[in-house]
Design a protein around this nucleic acid. Structure first.
Lengths: 344, 344
DNA sequence: CTGTTAGCGCATTCAA
DNA sequence: TTGAATGCGCTAACAG
């Protein structure tokens, strides 16, 4: 058994209260006693036990991260990894730890009473929650809204959907629109748009705006779920049909993860980029588009910064600071490269 | 404040001991009392507080995951993500949670007294450790070896390097050798080998074996650190020099993350695969090689399964089971596709 | 500035 | 089968 505060106190010849004061710098202690305590702590290699501390303070200094959709979706890799990195950096600087929460298989199937993140919350395993990838029909939404009502410390990544709570977002609808607009300005009128299945609903508004402001543009959605996205054949067929036969001239890609396949499919069909097909993509990780040949034009979405921002906000909530803004919006940046051809 | 065991006991008209017995199914309780307790638990939405429980049992049901090298290295994304997924799946099935531990910047720079994972261990925040990416000169090695000596529950991913402890590995040296051998059998004699900086030392043994068994093979290393790997120029220059000028005919790639750049660089130089250059790669995630055009031959390393295996082993250790094998070796599988040309 | 003491929520031992 | 009592390691209120 590791040494406890009593062992340290005994060796230093003081009371446990004095030791506690030193650990937490919660009160002044005379120099000689402080020195004795420090010596004893070194001697035992003492670290305060988190259960004892937690029992009194009811806080774990752990933050739960909940990504309802992360299982099996390729989409997630870059995006979620960047989010995680951003979150982790901030949390660890503030001495918080990050706990991964993922639904175990049973929840969705067996209709468990509680989603797992709720357990973490009520068992006080975590002091707050960071959430990404919430969708309309997530079975956890009920529980989620309840936490929102209780003003539990919690930040979600994505569009605001409730009057309470905090969120961090990059305006999916705005940059998807801007991508089409960018192609439009280069005189493209027939545009393929690749979106992820989970964004289908969200995209409807974008489509409306496109129809309204650029009525002469013809758009065609290419929707991928997590499996279809990894399939080259799927892309080959789409390119064959829409580019070669129906003469679409440009494509918007929802994430750089898919660029490799697109380029491969194009190569297979001997489609030249940008001459036969212009490409613009969303870039979640800085510089990704530069790695391809040709380098891909992109809207950069600062996912890392979003993760970091969310974590910052959350720490503010947890530590009870007054927070004025309930939303944190991130700007996307257009990066011009070599994959768009002006049709004039 | 959430309800405690006392509230439940009071409402059910029993003692807290009885409630505890129900929570833990640790003893038989008469049916009517059990029902009353269950009703009270539902009523309060009761979840046992982890601090109280932990204080008695000194276990958190949390597992720490420590990836010393994960910061800023592109290499890690696929590999580590797959590891994490495997670990997470197993852990969550057994009701353990996964805590990410990452060195905060200060440790390496300011020479902190303790690496962070040691704090987690001594503060009892975690019941065990899962480690990947340990390198020779990691500053944490000292602390790590000490834990090994104490037989702290801990699994590391990688080659065995200490008489005690448990590890899970896929024989880097073996499959790197086999990659060259595969090309050799297709009559390649001039082979580029791409390795990560951190594997430089490890590769020396492979190089020796190659020289011994295939003396007429000329090999040239292309070493990338985390930054150089993302640079297309770097690859263009290497291909220009070695393939176009010095007539190397094949290349081994250490991970599919780099295939996109390689293909882009080849396209830029109008180098055709496999006619001008044969390619073989390591595949950490099933099916990755299939996504490119041409599809890339690969040695599949079952990283997900390794993560899952490590987690399984660890849970065994934590729960005090007898474990016979201290090592778990994973087989790699060669997947033939379209990127290697027989030089005959 | 310092020590004594009372819990925090729970599992567990001992009597009954 | 049950309840009372103890203590896990710590913080904080209080008294000195």
């Amino acid at each position: 058994m590791a040494a406890s505060i009593h062992d340290v106190a005994k060796r230093a010849g003081v009371s446990i209260a004095t030791v506690s004061r030193i650990i937490n710098s919660s009160a002044t202690v005379s120099d000689n006693k402080a020195a004795a305590v420090r010596e004893a702590m070194e001697y035992f290699n003492y670290e305060p036990n988190q259960f004892g501390r937690g029992l009194v303070k009811q806080t774990s200094h752990m933050i739960g991260v909940y990504f309802p959709h992360s299982t099996g979706s390729i989409f997630d890799s870059d995006y979620n990894l960047e989010l995680l990195k951003g979150m982790e950096q901030v949390l660890s600087r503030h001495n918080y730890s990050l706990v991964l929460i993922s639904e175990n298989d049973e929840y969705e199937k067996k209709k468990m009473a509680k989603p797992k993140f709720l357990e973490y919350v009520s068992q006080k395993r975590v002091d707050g929650l960071l959430i990404s990838g919430l969708t309309q029909k997530s079975s956890a939404e009920e529980a989620f809204k309840q936490l929102l009502e209780e003003e539990y410390p919690m930040i979600y990544i994505g569009k605001r959907f409730h009057k309470k709570g905090y969120n961090v977002y990059a305006q999916y609808e705005v940059y998807m629109y801007k991508m089409v607009e960018t192609l439009y300005q280069k005189n493209h009128r027939d545009i393929l748009i690749h979106i992820w299945y989970m964004h289908k609903e969200l995209f409807k508004n974008v489509a409306d705006r496109i129809r309204e402001h650029m009525p002469e543009v013809r758009i065609q959605l290419i929707i991928s779920d997590s499996t279809g996205a990894s399939d080259r054949k799927y892309w080959v067929e789409n390119l064959k049909k829409y580019v070669q036969e129906e003469k679409y001239t440009a494509v918007c890609i929802s994430g750089m993860e898919s660029i490799g396949i697109l380029l491969s499919a194009s190569a297979e069909l001997e489609l030249h980029i940008p001459d036969d097909l212009s490409v613009i993509a969303v870039e979640h990780k800085k510089g990704q588009g530069q790695r391809s040949y040709p380098a891909i034009d992109a809207f950069y979405v600062p996912v890392f910064e979003m993760g970091a921002g969310a974590a910052d906000l959350l720490i503010g909530c947890v530590e009870g600071q007054e927070i004025s803004d309930h939303s944190m919006e991130f700007e996307t940046v257009y990066i011009e490269r070599e994959s768009i051809k002006d049709r004039n």
